[in-house]
Design a protein around this nucleic acid. Structure first.
Lengths: 214, 214
DNA sequence: CGACTCGTTGAGCAAGGTCAAAGTACGTGG
DNA sequence: CCACGTACTTTGACCTTGCTCAACGAGTCG
Protein backbone atom coordinates (compact mmCIF):
# COMPACT_ATOMS: atom_id res chain seq x y z
CA UNK A 1 0.00 0.00 0.00
CA UNK A 2 2.81 2.37 0.91
CA UNK A 3 4.33 1.55 -2.45
CA UNK A 4 1.39 2.91 -4.42
CA UNK A 5 2.57 6.36 -5.53
CA UNK A 6 -0.76 8.10 -5.22
CA UNK A 7 -1.03 7.08 -1.56
CA UNK A 8 2.66 7.44 -0.77
CA UNK A 9 2.35 10.70 1.09
CA UNK A 10 -0.45 9.71 3.41
CA UNK A 11 0.25 8.75 6.98
CA UNK A 12 -0.44 5.18 8.18
CA UNK A 13 -3.84 5.99 9.70
CA UNK A 14 -5.11 7.51 6.49
CA UNK A 15 -3.78 4.61 4.45
CA UNK A 16 -5.52 2.25 6.78
CA UNK A 17 -8.79 4.06 6.25
CA UNK A 18 -8.46 3.69 2.52
CA UNK A 19 -7.34 0.09 2.72
CA UNK A 20 -10.55 -0.73 4.54
CA UNK A 21 -12.63 0.33 1.57
CA UNK A 22 -10.39 -1.36 -0.95
CA UNK A 23 -11.07 -4.73 -2.47
CA UNK A 24 -8.17 -6.99 -3.36
CA UNK A 25 -8.43 -9.60 -6.07
CA UNK A 26 -6.08 -12.01 -7.79
CA UNK A 27 -6.26 -12.68 -11.48
CA UNK A 28 -4.68 -15.33 -13.65
CA UNK A 29 -2.91 -14.79 -16.93
CA UNK A 30 -5.03 -13.43 -19.80
CA UNK A 31 -7.95 -12.73 -17.54
CA UNK A 32 -10.21 -9.80 -18.37
CA UNK A 33 -10.77 -7.13 -15.72
CA UNK A 34 -13.49 -5.44 -17.73
CA UNK A 35 -14.50 -4.96 -21.33
CA UNK A 36 -15.96 -2.35 -23.64
CA UNK A 37 -19.62 -1.66 -23.06
CA UNK A 38 -19.39 -2.39 -19.35
CA UNK A 39 -19.36 0.15 -16.61
CA UNK A 40 -16.32 0.00 -14.39
CA UNK A 41 -17.00 2.19 -11.41
CA UNK A 42 -13.68 1.32 -9.80
CA UNK A 43 -10.27 2.85 -9.64
CA UNK A 44 -8.08 -0.19 -10.18
CA UNK A 45 -4.52 -0.18 -8.95
CA UNK A 46 -2.04 -2.84 -10.02
CA UNK A 47 -0.18 -4.31 -7.05
CA UNK A 48 1.55 -7.15 -8.81
CA UNK A 49 1.73 -8.21 -12.44
CA UNK A 50 1.02 -6.48 -15.73
CA UNK A 51 -2.19 -5.39 -17.40
CA UNK A 52 -2.72 -4.29 -20.97
CA UNK A 53 -5.34 -1.77 -22.00
CA UNK A 54 -6.59 -1.91 -25.57
CA UNK A 55 -9.40 -0.87 -27.81
CA UNK A 56 -11.13 -2.89 -30.49
CA UNK A 57 -11.65 -1.16 -33.85
CA UNK A 58 -14.71 -2.11 -35.91
CA UNK A 59 -12.32 -3.92 -38.21
CA UNK A 60 -11.50 -6.21 -35.31
CA UNK A 61 -8.02 -4.76 -35.04
CA UNK A 62 -6.67 -4.67 -31.50
CA UNK A 63 -5.28 -1.25 -30.67
CA UNK A 64 -2.94 -1.33 -27.67
CA UNK A 65 -3.30 1.81 -25.58
CA UNK A 66 -1.11 1.27 -22.56
CA UNK A 67 0.53 -1.33 -20.34
CA UNK A 68 0.15 -1.01 -16.58
CA UNK A 69 2.75 -2.23 -14.11
CA UNK A 70 2.88 -2.26 -10.31
CA UNK A 71 1.74 1.09 -8.90
CA UNK A 72 -0.11 2.12 -12.06
CA UNK A 73 -3.85 2.58 -12.08
CA UNK A 74 -6.76 2.68 -14.48
CA UNK A 75 -10.37 3.76 -14.16
CA UNK A 76 -9.88 7.46 -13.58
CA UNK A 77 -11.88 8.10 -16.76
CA UNK A 78 -15.17 6.70 -15.63
CA UNK A 79 -15.44 8.45 -12.32
CA UNK A 80 -15.41 11.62 -14.34
CA UNK A 81 -17.80 10.73 -17.11
CA UNK A 82 -19.48 7.75 -15.42
CA UNK A 83 -20.28 6.33 -18.84
CA UNK A 84 -19.42 2.95 -20.27
CA UNK A 85 -15.83 2.19 -21.12
CA UNK A 86 -14.84 1.68 -24.74
CA UNK A 87 -11.76 -0.38 -24.05
CA UNK A 88 -10.60 -3.65 -22.51
CA UNK A 89 -8.29 -4.46 -19.61
CA UNK A 90 -6.62 -7.88 -19.64
CA UNK A 91 -3.82 -9.25 -17.50
CA UNK A 92 -0.58 -10.27 -19.17
CA UNK A 93 0.61 -12.25 -16.16
CA UNK A 94 -0.80 -13.45 -12.88
CA UNK A 95 -1.71 -10.22 -11.17
CA UNK A 96 -3.07 -8.72 -8.03
CA UNK A 97 -5.43 -5.78 -8.38
CA UNK A 98 -6.77 -3.43 -5.75
CA UNK A 99 -10.09 -1.73 -6.47
CA UNK A 100 -11.70 1.32 -4.93
CA UNK A 101 -15.26 2.32 -5.72
CA UNK A 102 -15.71 5.74 -7.26
CA UNK A 103 -17.98 6.86 -4.50
CA UNK A 104 -15.21 6.26 -2.02
CA UNK A 105 -12.45 7.68 -4.17
CA UNK A 106 -14.28 10.91 -4.71
CA UNK A 107 -14.47 11.43 -0.99
CA UNK A 108 -10.81 10.60 -0.49
CA UNK A 109 -9.80 12.97 -3.27
CA UNK A 110 -11.58 15.88 -1.62
CA UNK A 111 -10.41 14.94 1.87
CA UNK A 112 -6.77 14.20 1.09
CA UNK A 113 -5.52 16.66 -1.49
CA UNK A 114 -2.20 14.87 -1.89
CA UNK A 115 -4.04 12.00 -3.54
CA UNK A 116 -5.66 14.32 -6.07
CA UNK A 117 -2.32 16.01 -6.58
CA UNK A 118 -0.52 12.74 -7.21
CA UNK A 119 -3.22 11.52 -9.54
CA UNK A 120 -3.04 14.78 -11.41
CA UNK A 121 0.69 14.30 -11.76
CA UNK A 122 0.23 10.80 -13.10
CA UNK A 123 -2.53 11.64 -15.57
CA UNK A 124 -0.59 14.67 -16.76
CA UNK A 125 2.45 12.51 -17.39
CA UNK A 126 0.32 10.02 -19.25
CA UNK A 127 -1.13 12.82 -21.36
CA UNK A 128 2.34 14.04 -22.18
CA UNK A 129 3.39 10.59 -23.27
CA UNK A 130 0.28 10.16 -25.39
CA UNK A 131 0.85 13.52 -27.06
CA UNK A 132 4.38 12.45 -27.89
CA UNK A 133 2.95 9.30 -29.41
CA UNK A 134 0.64 11.44 -31.54
CA UNK A 135 3.60 13.50 -32.70
CA UNK A 136 5.53 10.43 -33.69
CA UNK A 137 2.50 8.93 -35.46
CA UNK A 138 1.97 12.03 -37.55
CA UNK A 139 5.55 13.13 -38.02
CA UNK A 140 7.76 10.07 -38.26
CA UNK A 141 7.74 7.03 -40.50
CA UNK A 142 7.30 3.51 -39.16
CA UNK A 143 11.02 2.78 -39.10
CA UNK A 144 11.82 5.75 -36.91
CA UNK A 145 8.88 5.07 -34.62
CA UNK A 146 10.15 1.57 -33.99
CA UNK A 147 13.72 2.77 -33.41
CA UNK A 148 12.55 5.53 -31.07
CA UNK A 149 10.47 3.11 -29.09
CA UNK A 150 13.42 0.79 -28.52
CA UNK A 151 15.69 3.67 -27.54
CA UNK A 152 13.13 5.08 -25.14
CA UNK A 153 12.62 1.70 -23.53
CA UNK A 154 16.36 1.26 -23.16
CA UNK A 155 16.77 4.76 -21.74
CA UNK A 156 14.01 4.22 -19.19
CA UNK A 157 15.49 1.00 -17.91
CA UNK A 158 19.06 2.19 -18.28
CA UNK A 159 20.05 -1.05 -19.98
CA UNK A 160 21.23 -2.04 -23.41
CA UNK A 161 19.14 -5.15 -23.52
CA UNK A 162 15.44 -4.42 -23.49
CA UNK A 163 12.55 -6.79 -23.13
CA UNK A 164 9.42 -5.99 -25.08
CA UNK A 165 6.58 -5.73 -22.58
CA UNK A 166 4.08 -7.16 -25.07
CA UNK A 167 3.97 -9.27 -28.20
CA UNK A 168 5.22 -7.77 -31.44
CA UNK A 169 1.67 -7.90 -32.70
CA UNK A 170 0.55 -5.63 -29.86
CA UNK A 171 3.61 -3.45 -30.23
CA UNK A 172 2.77 -2.97 -33.90
CA UNK A 173 -0.74 -1.78 -33.02
CA UNK A 174 0.67 0.60 -30.41
CA UNK A 175 3.07 2.10 -32.95
CA UNK A 176 0.39 2.39 -35.61
CA UNK A 177 1.79 -0.21 -37.96
CA UNK A 178 1.50 -3.94 -38.69
CA UNK A 179 3.33 -6.97 -37.29
CA UNK A 180 4.84 -7.52 -40.72
CA UNK A 181 6.42 -4.08 -40.78
CA UNK A 182 7.78 -4.41 -37.25
CA UNK A 183 9.30 -7.76 -38.12
CA UNK A 184 10.83 -6.44 -41.34
CA UNK A 185 12.31 -3.33 -39.75
CA UNK A 186 13.82 -5.22 -36.85
CA UNK A 187 15.39 -7.66 -39.27
CA UNK A 188 16.76 -4.69 -41.21
CA UNK A 189 18.18 -3.16 -38.00
CA UNK A 190 19.83 -6.46 -37.24
CA UNK A 191 21.31 -6.54 -40.73
CA UNK A 192 22.87 -3.13 -40.17
CA UNK A 193 24.34 -4.31 -36.90
CA UNK A 194 22.25 -1.95 -34.80
CA UNK A 195 20.53 -4.58 -32.69
CA UNK A 196 20.57 -8.28 -31.93
CA UNK A 197 17.33 -10.16 -31.40
CA UNK A 198 17.11 -12.86 -28.78
CA UNK A 199 14.31 -15.13 -27.69
CA UNK A 200 11.12 -13.98 -25.96
CA UNK A 201 11.15 -10.41 -27.25
CA UNK A 202 14.61 -9.70 -25.91
CA UNK A 203 16.52 -7.16 -27.98
CA UNK A 204 20.08 -6.00 -27.43
CA UNK A 205 20.90 -2.56 -28.72
CA UNK A 206 24.38 -2.49 -30.21
CA UNK A 207 24.56 0.98 -31.76
CA UNK A 208 22.47 3.66 -30.12
CA UNK A 209 24.11 6.47 -32.06
CA UNK A 210 23.26 5.05 -35.45
CA UNK A 211 19.68 4.34 -34.46
CA UNK A 212 19.10 7.74 -32.95
CA UNK A 213 20.69 9.62 -35.81
CA UNK A 214 19.21 7.81 -38.77
CA UNK B 1 -13.20 34.39 -12.79
CA UNK B 2 -16.36 32.60 -11.78
CA UNK B 3 -16.56 31.35 -15.34
CA UNK B 4 -13.29 29.45 -15.14
CA UNK B 5 -14.38 25.86 -14.59
CA UNK B 6 -11.55 24.89 -12.28
CA UNK B 7 -12.44 27.71 -9.90
CA UNK B 8 -16.20 27.45 -10.33
CA UNK B 9 -16.88 25.71 -7.06
CA UNK B 10 -14.94 28.06 -4.83
CA UNK B 11 -16.70 30.69 -2.79
CA UNK B 12 -16.09 34.38 -3.51
CA UNK B 13 -13.50 34.85 -0.75
CA UNK B 14 -11.40 32.01 -2.02
CA UNK B 15 -11.64 33.22 -5.58
CA UNK B 16 -10.57 36.63 -4.44
CA UNK B 17 -7.49 35.15 -2.77
CA UNK B 18 -6.51 33.43 -5.99
CA UNK B 19 -7.25 36.47 -8.13
CA UNK B 20 -4.79 38.43 -6.05
CA UNK B 21 -1.94 36.19 -7.08
CA UNK B 22 -2.99 36.04 -10.71
CA UNK B 23 -1.51 38.15 -13.43
CA UNK B 24 -3.69 39.29 -16.32
CA UNK B 25 -2.27 40.08 -19.71
CA UNK B 26 -3.62 40.97 -23.12
CA UNK B 27 -2.13 39.59 -26.28
CA UNK B 28 -2.57 40.54 -29.90
CA UNK B 29 -3.19 38.16 -32.75
CA UNK B 30 -0.39 35.71 -33.55
CA UNK B 31 1.51 36.59 -30.42
CA UNK B 32 3.60 33.90 -28.75
CA UNK B 33 2.93 33.12 -25.09
CA UNK B 34 5.97 30.90 -24.84
CA UNK B 35 8.08 28.69 -27.05
CA UNK B 36 9.97 25.43 -26.98
CA UNK B 37 13.12 25.51 -24.90
CA UNK B 38 11.73 28.08 -22.49
CA UNK B 39 10.51 27.39 -19.02
CA UNK B 40 6.94 28.38 -18.41
CA UNK B 41 6.33 28.17 -14.70
CA UNK B 42 2.77 29.42 -15.03
CA UNK B 43 -0.63 27.89 -15.27
CA UNK B 44 -2.17 29.96 -18.05
CA UNK B 45 -5.93 30.24 -18.29
CA UNK B 46 -7.60 31.66 -21.38
CA UNK B 47 -10.19 34.31 -20.48
CA UNK B 48 -10.92 35.59 -23.93
CA UNK B 49 -9.75 34.55 -27.38
CA UNK B 50 -8.15 31.42 -28.80
CA UNK B 51 -4.70 29.92 -28.42
CA UNK B 52 -3.11 27.16 -30.45
CA UNK B 53 -0.56 24.75 -29.00
CA UNK B 54 1.80 23.10 -31.43
CA UNK B 55 5.08 21.30 -31.67
CA UNK B 56 7.83 21.76 -34.23
CA UNK B 57 9.28 18.58 -35.74
CA UNK B 58 12.94 18.60 -36.80
CA UNK B 59 11.68 18.65 -40.36
CA UNK B 60 10.16 22.04 -39.59
CA UNK B 61 6.67 20.63 -39.81
CA UNK B 62 4.20 22.29 -37.46
CA UNK B 63 2.25 19.73 -35.49
CA UNK B 64 -0.94 21.13 -34.01
CA UNK B 65 -1.66 19.63 -30.61
CA UNK B 66 -4.68 21.48 -29.29
CA UNK B 67 -6.68 24.70 -29.51
CA UNK B 68 -7.63 26.45 -26.27
CA UNK B 69 -10.78 28.53 -25.90
CA UNK B 70 -12.16 30.56 -22.98
CA UNK B 71 -11.92 28.60 -19.72
CA UNK B 72 -9.24 26.24 -21.01
CA UNK B 73 -5.80 26.19 -19.48
CA UNK B 74 -2.28 25.11 -20.31
CA UNK B 75 0.88 24.75 -18.27
CA UNK B 76 -0.15 21.89 -16.02
CA UNK B 77 2.74 19.89 -17.48
CA UNK B 78 5.58 21.96 -16.24
CA UNK B 79 4.54 22.29 -12.63
CA UNK B 80 4.86 18.53 -12.54
CA UNK B 81 8.11 18.05 -14.36
CA UNK B 82 9.44 21.60 -14.05
CA UNK B 83 11.48 21.09 -17.19
CA UNK B 84 11.52 23.10 -20.37
CA UNK B 85 8.54 22.94 -22.67
CA UNK B 86 8.87 21.34 -26.08
CA UNK B 87 5.97 23.13 -27.68
CA UNK B 88 4.70 26.58 -28.60
CA UNK B 89 1.65 28.57 -27.56
CA UNK B 90 0.46 31.27 -29.96
CA UNK B 91 -2.75 33.31 -29.98
CA UNK B 92 -5.09 32.94 -32.94
CA UNK B 93 -7.03 36.11 -32.03
CA UNK B 94 -6.68 38.99 -29.64
CA UNK B 95 -6.76 37.24 -26.29
CA UNK B 96 -6.70 37.78 -22.58
CA UNK B 97 -4.69 35.34 -20.50
CA UNK B 98 -4.57 34.89 -16.76
CA UNK B 99 -1.39 33.41 -15.30
CA UNK B 100 -0.71 31.80 -11.94
CA UNK B 101 2.76 30.88 -10.81
CA UNK B 102 3.36 27.24 -10.04
CA UNK B 103 4.44 27.98 -6.51
CA UNK B 104 1.07 29.54 -5.87
CA UNK B 105 -0.92 26.92 -7.73
CA UNK B 106 0.63 24.09 -5.81
CA UNK B 107 -0.48 25.69 -2.58
CA UNK B 108 -4.00 26.26 -3.86
CA UNK B 109 -4.26 22.70 -5.11
CA UNK B 110 -3.44 21.31 -1.69
CA UNK B 111 -5.61 23.82 0.13
CA UNK B 112 -8.69 23.68 -2.11
CA UNK B 113 -9.25 20.10 -3.23
CA UNK B 114 -12.03 21.07 -5.61
CA UNK B 115 -9.45 22.80 -7.80
CA UNK B 116 -7.33 19.68 -7.97
CA UNK B 117 -10.45 17.65 -8.60
CA UNK B 118 -11.59 19.89 -11.45
CA UNK B 119 -8.15 19.94 -12.99
CA UNK B 120 -8.01 16.18 -12.77
CA UNK B 121 -11.35 16.03 -14.56
CA UNK B 122 -10.10 18.31 -17.30
CA UNK B 123 -6.78 16.59 -17.84
CA UNK B 124 -8.50 13.21 -17.81
CA UNK B 125 -10.91 14.38 -20.48
CA UNK B 126 -8.03 15.71 -22.53
CA UNK B 127 -6.24 12.38 -22.20
CA UNK B 128 -9.36 10.57 -23.37
CA UNK B 129 -9.62 12.80 -26.40
CA UNK B 130 -5.94 12.35 -27.23
CA UNK B 131 -6.25 8.58 -26.93
CA UNK B 132 -9.17 8.67 -29.35
CA UNK B 133 -7.00 10.67 -31.72
CA UNK B 134 -4.34 7.98 -31.47
CA UNK B 135 -6.92 5.33 -32.29
CA UNK B 136 -8.07 7.21 -35.34
CA UNK B 137 -4.50 7.82 -36.48
CA UNK B 138 -3.62 4.15 -36.27
CA UNK B 139 -6.93 2.64 -37.29
CA UNK B 140 -8.59 4.88 -39.86
CA UNK B 141 -7.51 6.23 -43.21
CA UNK B 142 -7.16 9.94 -43.89
CA UNK B 143 -10.59 10.26 -45.49
CA UNK B 144 -12.40 8.85 -42.50
CA UNK B 145 -10.36 10.93 -40.07
CA UNK B 146 -11.36 14.08 -41.88
CA UNK B 147 -15.01 13.07 -42.01
CA UNK B 148 -15.03 12.10 -38.34
CA UNK B 149 -13.47 15.39 -37.38
CA UNK B 150 -16.18 17.37 -39.17
CA UNK B 151 -18.95 15.27 -37.66
CA UNK B 152 -17.51 15.61 -34.17
CA UNK B 153 -17.21 19.35 -34.55
CA UNK B 154 -20.79 19.56 -35.77
CA UNK B 155 -22.02 17.36 -32.95
CA UNK B 156 -20.24 19.43 -30.32
CA UNK B 157 -21.71 22.70 -31.54
CA UNK B 158 -25.05 21.16 -32.43
CA UNK B 159 -25.04 22.87 -35.79
CA UNK B 160 -24.88 21.76 -39.38
CA UNK B 161 -22.53 24.52 -40.41
CA UNK B 162 -19.17 24.26 -38.75
CA UNK B 163 -16.34 26.72 -38.74
CA UNK B 164 -12.84 25.31 -38.74
CA UNK B 165 -11.06 26.70 -35.70
CA UNK B 166 -7.73 26.77 -37.54
CA UNK B 167 -6.32 26.86 -41.05
CA UNK B 168 -6.56 23.75 -43.18
CA UNK B 169 -2.82 23.51 -42.99
CA UNK B 170 -2.98 23.25 -39.20
CA UNK B 171 -5.96 20.92 -39.38
CA UNK B 172 -3.98 18.64 -41.67
CA UNK B 173 -1.14 18.45 -39.16
CA UNK B 174 -3.60 17.69 -36.35
CA UNK B 175 -5.15 14.85 -38.36
CA UNK B 176 -1.79 13.45 -39.34
CA UNK B 177 -2.00 14.23 -43.01
CA UNK B 178 -1.07 17.01 -45.46
CA UNK B 179 -2.90 20.15 -46.61
CA UNK B 180 -3.09 18.64 -50.10
CA UNK B 181 -4.94 15.56 -48.86
CA UNK B 182 -7.37 17.61 -46.76
CA UNK B 183 -8.11 19.81 -49.73
CA UNK B 184 -8.62 16.85 -52.04
CA UNK B 185 -10.88 14.95 -49.67
CA UNK B 186 -13.07 17.94 -48.94
CA UNK B 187 -13.45 18.56 -52.66
CA UNK B 188 -14.40 14.90 -53.06
CA UNK B 189 -16.98 15.19 -50.24
CA UNK B 190 -18.42 18.22 -51.98
CA UNK B 191 -18.59 16.28 -55.24
CA UNK B 192 -20.64 13.58 -53.52
CA UNK B 193 -22.99 16.18 -52.13
CA UNK B 194 -22.00 15.51 -48.52
CA UNK B 195 -20.81 19.00 -47.70
CA UNK B 196 -20.67 22.52 -49.08
CA UNK B 197 -17.63 24.69 -48.55
CA UNK B 198 -17.99 28.39 -47.86
CA UNK B 199 -15.50 31.15 -47.28
CA UNK B 200 -13.26 31.39 -44.21
CA UNK B 201 -13.23 27.70 -43.37
CA UNK B 202 -17.00 27.48 -43.12
CA UNK B 203 -18.36 24.07 -44.03
CA UNK B 204 -22.00 23.06 -44.21
CA UNK B 205 -22.72 19.40 -43.66
CA UNK B 206 -25.48 18.22 -45.98
CA UNK B 207 -25.52 14.48 -45.40
CA UNK B 208 -24.40 13.28 -41.99
CA UNK B 209 -25.59 9.74 -42.56
CA UNK B 210 -23.51 9.19 -45.66
CA UNK B 211 -20.43 10.65 -44.05
CA UNK B 212 -20.77 8.65 -40.85
CA UNK B 213 -21.49 5.40 -42.62
CA UNK B 214 -18.91 5.47 -45.37
C1' DC C 1 0.81 -34.64 -29.07
C1' DG C 2 -2.21 -31.59 -31.70
C1' DA C 3 -4.34 -27.03 -32.31
C1' DC C 4 -3.72 -22.40 -32.18
C1' DT C 5 -1.61 -18.11 -32.04
C1' DC C 6 2.45 -15.55 -33.12
C1' DG C 7 6.31 -14.40 -36.06
C1' DT C 8 8.67 -14.22 -40.50
C1' DT C 9 9.23 -13.71 -45.44
C1' DG C 10 7.56 -12.74 -50.17
C1' DA C 11 4.93 -10.28 -53.83
C1' DG C 12 1.69 -6.91 -55.39
C1' DC C 13 -0.85 -2.79 -54.94
C1' DA C 14 -2.97 1.50 -53.42
C1' DA C 15 -3.23 5.38 -50.30
C1' DG C 16 -1.32 9.28 -49.72
C1' DG C 17 3.07 11.97 -49.35
C1' DT C 18 6.09 14.93 -52.23
C1' DC C 19 7.19 18.27 -55.55
C1' DA C 20 5.62 21.88 -58.56
C1' DA C 21 2.86 25.60 -60.10
C1' DA C 22 -0.97 28.55 -60.27
C1' DG C 23 -4.67 30.87 -57.94
C1' DT C 24 -6.60 33.24 -53.79
C1' DA C 25 -7.06 35.64 -49.46
C1' DC C 26 -5.06 38.70 -46.35
C1' DG C 27 -2.34 42.02 -43.90
C1' DT C 28 0.91 45.72 -44.38
C1' DG C 29 2.87 49.86 -45.72
C1' DG C 30 3.07 53.57 -48.82
C1' DC D 1 -7.41 53.19 -50.26
C1' DC D 2 -4.74 50.63 -53.23
C1' DA D 3 -0.73 47.78 -54.35
C1' DC D 4 2.28 44.61 -53.15
C1' DG D 5 4.13 40.58 -50.70
C1' DT D 6 3.38 36.66 -48.01
C1' DA D 7 1.10 32.68 -46.61
C1' DC D 8 -2.55 29.56 -47.53
C1' DT D 9 -5.19 26.71 -50.79
C1' DT D 10 -6.01 24.05 -54.75
C1' DT D 11 -4.94 21.03 -58.58
C1' DG D 12 -1.91 17.94 -61.17
C1' DA D 13 1.59 14.23 -61.76
C1' DC D 14 4.58 11.06 -59.80
C1' DC D 15 6.59 7.90 -56.65
C1' DT D 16 7.49 5.67 -52.21
C1' DT D 17 6.04 3.63 -47.97
C1' DG D 18 3.95 0.27 -45.92
C1' DC D 19 -0.55 -2.34 -45.93
C1' DT D 20 -2.74 -6.57 -47.59
C1' DC D 21 -2.94 -11.24 -48.65
C1' DA D 22 -0.74 -15.62 -48.46
C1' DA D 23 2.12 -19.31 -46.97
C1' DC D 24 5.20 -21.36 -43.93
C1' DG D 25 7.81 -22.06 -39.54
C1' DA D 26 8.07 -21.86 -34.57
C1' DG D 27 6.70 -21.65 -30.12
C1' DT D 28 3.03 -22.58 -26.56
C1' DC D 29 -0.94 -24.14 -24.10
C1' DG D 30 -4.18 -27.48 -23.03
Amino acid sequence: MALVPIFAQLDPDERHEIAQRARQKKYGRNEQLYGAGEKNPYLMIVHRGWVKIYRLAESGREQLIRVLGPGDFIGEMSFISASETDHFAVTLEDSQICSLHHEDIRGFLLRYPTIAYKMLETVTGRLEQTERLVSSLTGEDAERRIASFLLELAARDGKDTVELPVSKKDLASYLGTTPETVSRRLTAFEGKGWIRQGAKGRIEILDREAMAGM
